Amino acid sequence: MFDDRDALMHRIHADLMDGYDEELEMEIEDRHVDELAGDLSPEALLQHKESRRIYFRELFRLQAELVKLQDWVQATGHKVVILFEGRDAAGKGGAIKRITQRLNPRVCRVVALPAPSDRERTQWYFQRYIQHLPAAGEIVLFDRSWYNRAGVEKVMGFCSDEQYEAFFRDVPEFEKMIIRSGVQLIKYWFSLSDQEQELRFLGRIHDPLKQWKLSPMDLESRRRWELYTKAKEVMIERTHIPESPWWVVPADDKKKARLNCIHHLLSQMPYHEIERPAITLPERVRHEGYRRHQVPGEIYVPQVY
């Protein structure tokens, strides 16, 4: 199809740049309006560009390592569960996006469960999480997890004191059972300061593209900051066990938090590059009598762009 090698290489390069643009599109969400409007001084703008260059260089390098990790998990049948916990607007979702962005969703998937249904509230508390645990060769990332009971449910009064104490009694054994079954369990807490959460909430309030991220629960959590702090301290104290310790990610700087989290995650497994067989694109089989049927023009999407 491509007789001109230069044209072929140009097309491949353009496709690669399109892939990187996807990352840039996500990064735009993290930039302040005044930066986009050019309100920075020349010196600050230069420093900003340099920090972004370093960030993207490291992010793409780490994402390449994540692909190697994925191949190793698939080849060895390893099973991994990664929990992401933290205050609202701490950047858990952004970190998860960068981890999964270049990976195969059949190997690495994200679980973000809604509030339990009436039926699920009558089940054993951990029951609805069990069905999402990985099979061999899979990585599962929980965007919030069973630790909801130790945080939002406790602070908002969605569980009784008896249920709260039962959780702390059961969760160490539950996690040890998961680990004994051959699953590696990694737990991250994204730590956000009071001032930074306030800034991010204000950013969401004034950005029409981000207002959907703010729920009444998020706003109430802001009012109950100190109660959430106490709940977090109790949670870590009572569930930081040798078999599945907590790892705290300082998250006031989103980009540093993402890079540090990915770097640490890679260090938790003895992965190595899995050699792939060389791939050769086969020639397309062509038949003498084949004719492509004309598609009716009215079913095409309008070419607005």
Rank of each mutant, 00 (worst) to 15 (best):
D6C: 08
R11T: 15
M17L: 14
I28G: 02
I28K: 12
E29K: 10
P42Y: 10
A44T: 15
Q47M: 10
Q47G: 09
I54K: 15
A64I: 07
L66H: 03
L69T: 01
L69S: 02
V73W: 02
A75R: 11
L83A: 03
F84W: 06
G91Y: 00
I99N: 06
R102S: 07
L103T: 05
R109P: 07
R109G: 07
A115F: 05
P116A: 01
S117R: 10
R119M: 13
R121C: 05
Q123L: 09
R128C: 08
L133F: 11
P134S: 06
I139T: 11
D143Q: 05
Y147L: 07
A150Y: 00
G151Y: 00
V152H: 02
F158I: 03
D161L: 07
D161T: 09
E165C: 09
E173P: 01
E175H: 09
G182R: 03
E196K: 05
E196V: 05
R200L: 08
L202N: 15
L209F: 12
L209E: 10
K213N: 05
K213P: 01
P216D: 02
M217I: 15
W225I: 08
L227F: 09
Y228T: 04
T229A: 12
V234Q: 13
E243A: 14
E243T: 09
E243S: 12
P250H: 04
K256D: 13
N260M: 09
L265Y: 01
M269E: 10
Y271T: 04
Y271L: 06
H272C: 09
I274L: 02
T280A: 13
R284F: 08
H287C: 13
E288N: 12
E288C: 10
G289Y: 11
R292A: 14
R292C: 12
G297V: 12
P302F: 06
